[in-house]
Nucleic acid binder design. Sequence first.
RNA 1: UGGCCGAUGGUGUAAUGGUAACACAGGACAUUUUGGUUGUCUUAUUCAGGGUUCGAGUCCUUGUCGGCCAACCA
Length: 558
Amino acid sequence: MFTEEKKEEKSLNFLEEIVEADLQSGKYTQIITRFPPEPNGYLHIGHASSICLNFGLTKKFPGYTNLRFDDTNPVTEDTEYVESIKNDIRWLGFEWEHELYASDYFDILYNFALTLITKGLAYVDDSTSDEIAALKGTPTEPGKNSPFRDRTVEENLVLFERMKNGEFPDGSLTLRAKIDMAHMNMLMRDPILYRIKHAHHHRTGNNWCIYPMYDFAHGQSDSIETVTHSICTLEFAPHRELYDWIIEKLEIYPSRQYEFARRNLNYTVTSKRKLLQLVQEGYVNGWDDPRMPTLSGMRRRGYTPESIRDFCDRIGVARRENMIDVGLLEFCVREDLNKKALRRMVVLDPLKVVITNFPEGVTEMCHSENNPEDIAAGVREIPFSREILIEKEDFMEIPAKKYFRLAPGKMVRLKGAYIIQCDDFVKNESGEITEVRCSFIENSKSGQDTTGINVKGTLHWVSAAHAAPVEIRLYDRLFSVEDVSSEELDFKEYLNPDSLHVITGYAEPALLDSNPGDSFQFLRKGYFAADAESTAEKPVFNRTVTLRDNWAKASESK
RNA sequence: UGGCCGAUGGUGUAAUGGUAACACAGGACAUUUUGGUUGUCUUAUUCAGGGUUCGAGUCCUUGUCGGCCAACCA
């Protein structure tokens, strides 16, 4: 018997095509990519895409990927971020070849600047920031030369050295490339290469008071590392001309830049500035708040690395603007957790049910599979007794059409236990149903049912006497509009007021056997992960995502 | 009135001059001791006009629409 391996050949994305062509033409025998975060914030779902792209390329083709921190702006950067970034990349499932820092190249970069000055391709400018802006021109008007543009090489060398030595205050002088103030590409109008910042750097301390700009650090860092394919987002496309110019004038290793469109998720913000604001102004409880689209937040929420990688894989990569439905991300995590998560019964909004024909004070053990998708996960014991708890929404005094849960006279299966029939119910003075009275059907116990009765509905339940109260945090999307950037008001105006509800749930005893980070499927309710701070004394579960719910969908549309 | 980059179902990605495919979302049915899962079916004159060609989503051209570019941020 032959089991034919019919692996559907997935077509290459445009970056893979470029790499494959470069490999086939013999331009390279191996490729080198890099993931270049600035350590000024936590990694988010958008970064995951870039990580999967860069590391994915060298997984598919010969070569390796470096982690390089783009730490050229000391005032916003911090080692806290360095650590979280490394942790998140590893959690996602990737390992870099070398851990590198642009700041390691400050000496080399300084010498590159000297080379440019010596070649008459860079000059020290005394202009203020406003003056530089004023002479820059606009996209439709050419700029004008700075009055300091024609200093001699010697003068520039001396001034640049004095800049480095700390003889000038912040913002007083800059080093600029001498290119063309009338260039169509604004970035080529004598871009600033170095600026003065008397600031403490997280790695170089107070060794430097001049720091290179992105354009004078990124391309050269790529070149120093002989990165073959430097992949970045579309907004850097105009920088490519400058990237190439610097490499050409410095006559260094010609790394090449390729751009892809950043991935946008609806109902989500991934701007570092906005995320920082949410954290600093207390709209969320830190970078790892489970509502945050940060990798640390998603981890705490219960997202698995596999599901995030699968998501990145499914959305692909291209060069056009996009808005991806967050529902796809939810689909990915459901699909992964469906295979892995152990099932447990937890009642979130309890209603007491008394089984009137079941003896008082007796506990009977029932059994249920831990995961119907995975027989190897085994079965567990669940105590059953005279008083149980079910969800309020699982009983209706006057059942709606096609409602096949509990209602007067109706029968339902209690998952893993007996079929019960509703005989009566009790209301309080305000008309609220406080108790449902049922009788269980003899010989209908799960696994040994000889009654032949076919019921439409199966409910999750928990024995009242054995129920363990657990804190449950119900999360919903953080924003109530698809795209805050296309709305008129400040993005915080669109925060979803219902993004978090904390309730007490009543769990079957088996749930208590869990550790922080463990994921479970609460039957019929969704996937939940034990919070990082969950303890045996105070168990806390975060809802990762609800289950698909066709009944809720159908009732909504009515 | 500038330059650069884009445009394929509701969404995302394919089709590399030769039958518009896959996934998600939506809809229908079946299965089910989770209204979960699973299975089947279903949803597009490829932004518009013109051109090249036996043949165009793909090449050329014009237009329209969208994004990006004037931080001592990355």
